[in-house]
Design a protein around this nucleic acid. Sequence first.
DNA 1: CTATATGCAAATAGTTTGCACGGAT
DNA 2: ATCCGTGCAAACTATTTGCATATAG
Lengths: 133, 133
Amino acid sequence: MNFNKLLNEKGLKATPQRLLILNTIKDGGHIDIEKIYEKINKIIPSISIATVYKNLKLLVDKGIIKEVHINSFKTLYEVNTSFHIHLVCKKCKKITDIEVNEKSIFSFFNKLVKEDVKNFDVTGYYICENCKN
Amino acid sequence: MNFNKLLNEKGLKATPQRLLILNTIKDGGHIDIEKIYEKINKIIPSISIATVYKNLKLLVDKGIIKEVHINSFKTLYEVNTSFHIHLVCKKCKKITDIEVNEKSIFSFFNKLVKEDVKNFDVTGYYICENCKN
DNA sequence: CTATATGCAAATAGTTTGCACGGAT
DNA sequence: ATCCGTGCAAACTATTTGCATATAG
């Protein structure tokens, strides 16, 4: 993923801080601001938490990243890529992305709902294999 | 809905504050703590916001109410009743409950996902009739 | 009566803001 | 020289905690 190019396309400068925020989110999967800041701080110790807040908001506005809201978690961030749903283990809290066929889920819901729904957030809760013991 | 009885069953005292919190949530549909406090404050002006915080947490733990997390909203509360999904108008932000057949949605997802999913949070985004103008 | 719940105030945590400075063009 | 982004500190908002008092059962 070429974040440099992506940022420029959206009219944003590709600063080291921004690139590092994006790569941290990409690597972290579903990560909250505290962990983002911790990780970045090891590489750019001078970074301010305010810069992280400002950029997260900006990147969400531009559609480059997405907020993920799941019960009992703080706000998490993920890079905005293809449609998927989230599975959360009730015990260990691990979050897994499940890629699903977007068309099939939309046709299912649009039968169910009758309103013309543009997009969905879906989170499923389960007990993962590891935790079944 | 007999909140009095429900509270006692869970080992909680049915104080006026608690009953009012529950009725405020029931009437409010999807309501955040600020609005809950405002409404209650008109009826029991002596109530403390700390009491509201403590009770919301307690009632969530006991499964009497549920937190609702939707993009760009503060944490909302609803009384924990039958399975439904949330539709959110992207413009006016109105939230509507859609009662759906729980079995049909579970069988759909369990085909899709293969893990044994216990429950789902589903939120759909659309433009409501009013806002289409 | 006594275990729980409330209300208050203080503490803590989370987030936003304004502004001076710095780096890229 | 100008624009945009950063870092800092202060402000603001949200949430939690401890404790003395009040009250439901």
